[in-house]
Computed example of a mutant assay.
Amino acid sequence: MSLKEVYITRTAAFLPNNPVSNDEMEGYLGLINDRASKSRRIVLRNNGIKNRYYAIQKDGTATHTNAEMVSLAIRKLFEKNPTELKSVDLISCGTSSPDQMMPSHGVMVHGWLPESGNIEVVSPSGVCCSGMHAMKYAFMSIKSGMSTKAISSGSERLSRVLSADKFELEIQKLNELEENPYLSFDKDFLRWMLSDGAAVFMLEDKKSTDGPSLRIDWVEGISFANEIESCMYMAAEKMSDGTLKSYMDYEPQEMIEKSILSIKQDVKLLDEHIVKLGFNKLKTKFEENNLTNNDVTWFLPHMSSYFFEDKIYAQLADNGMEIPKDRWFSNLATHGNVGAGSIYLMVDELFNSGKLKVGDTILLAVPESSRFSYVFAYLTVC
């Protein structure tokens, strides 16, 4: 069986409501203990984010579900020919914030598309890498000839779990945040970083006839969970031995008192591992494919914060893979951290920017701190 080439032929995105500026955030997320956050200014200075999007109104009422946002992005793929949706034979959806535990996120997206056919739907779980896993599944399905037209997505809707009533009173001292920015990477830090939204790719076994396409040359994923304990987690509590205690093992009152459903992060592990592990693996992948930094026209790194930009740059340089900053592309400042959707939103903006030329290459890098997973992909404009 001969393997087919796989192309991203179209991209689309859906961002809910109007952008929310830094000064407007607490109007949506609320005040903890009726007091403005002392850490917000410091965290925002470090992460460099200026705007983000929330699928909620100021009173906390939801305006969109996660699945609905993905479906609206999918519909944008077919604005010129809505009936073409019927020809899709696979939908692969990644997110870390499904609207419910069951049914799966993917089938809920499919449920918003009643005019589509009875097709295969998959829902890779995880955090930031889940969107890339969704893309890789679609990529492998088309490459093997099992599908001819597939949609993959990355999306998040976390604004409701960031609201003030979901968080404990801030206990970090302002001077601690000033002395060590990593101390801001805890529950409160995530409130000023995460954003809602969805974006999608159309993957096909033939190039587009209407414009450029992105050939997916390879996708590489790796996990270090066999070596390192959990770093970011939700619906669990971290024990002294590094294991996680599930929300299912807590009494209802304990879940409230310990804010078990809040997102938490082990900042010491983040500092030690998040950049080094994945980009060392990337060096190996480049060596296997006889690639150098000169073979990268555009570098799209998923970053939760611009705090990591110079650290990634330094690690690449240490590995002999220095990529000049003028070849980097990010929309973190304008879109916020949309987790599994961030890399999709970056590709979508670059793809539709008019900046790409035939022969350009694009390196995608998505780190995930939950238990240190990484996915990299290499694309060629054609």
Rank of each mutant, 00 (worst) to 15 (best):
L3V: 11
K4I: 01
R10I: 11
R10L: 11
T11V: 15
P19H: 12
V20F: 10
D23R: 11
D23K: 15
M25F: 03
G30C: 15
I32E: 12
N33D: 15
A36N: 14
S37P: 14
K38Y: 11
R41A: 13
I42L: 13
R45F: 10
Y53K: 08
I56G: 09
K58W: 14
G60P: 03
G60A: 09
H64I: 04
N66A: 12
E68Y: 11
V70N: 10
L72V: 09
A73E: 12
K80W: 04
N81W: 06
L85N: 02
K86S: 13
S87F: 01
I91V: 14
T95M: 10
D99W: 04
D99M: 07
M102S: 08
P103G: 05
V109Y: 00
E120D: 05
V121E: 00
S123I: 02
P124Y: 04
V127W: 07
S130I: 06
S130Y: 00
A134E: 08
Y137A: 05
A138D: 00
G145T: 00
M146G: 05
T148E: 15
K149V: 02
I151A: 07
I151L: 01
S155K: 06
S155C: 15
R157Q: 14
L158N: 05
V161A: 00
K166A: 10
K166P: 04
F167C: 10
E168G: 14
K173E: 14
L174S: 09
N175A: 11
E178Q: 15
F185P: 08
K187Y: 10
D196K: 05
V200P: 12
M202F: 06
S208T: 03
D210M: 04
G211R: 12
P212V: 12
I216P: 08
F224A: 09
A225P: 02
I228N: 10
T243A: 10
E257N: 11
K258G: 01
K258Q: 13
I260H: 04
I260M: 07
I260W: 06
S262W: 07
I263D: 01
D266K: 13
L270K: 03
D271E: 12
G278W: 08
K281G: 04
N289H: 14
N290I: 08
L291T: 05
V296D: 05
W298N: 09
F299A: 02
S304C: 12
F307Q: 01
I312K: 00
I312E: 01
Y313T: 08
L316D: 00
A317Y: 05
D318F: 01
N319R: 02
I323A: 00
K325S: 08
D326P: 00
D326C: 08
W328Y: 07
N331F: 01
L332E: 04
T334G: 01
H335E: 03
I343M: 07
L345E: 02
L345K: 05
V347R: 07
D348N: 14
F351D: 02
S353T: 06
G354D: 11
K357W: 02
D360S: 02
D360R: 06
D360K: 06
T361H: 06
A365T: 09
S369P: 05
S370H: 08
S373Y: 02
V375M: 12
Y378I: 03
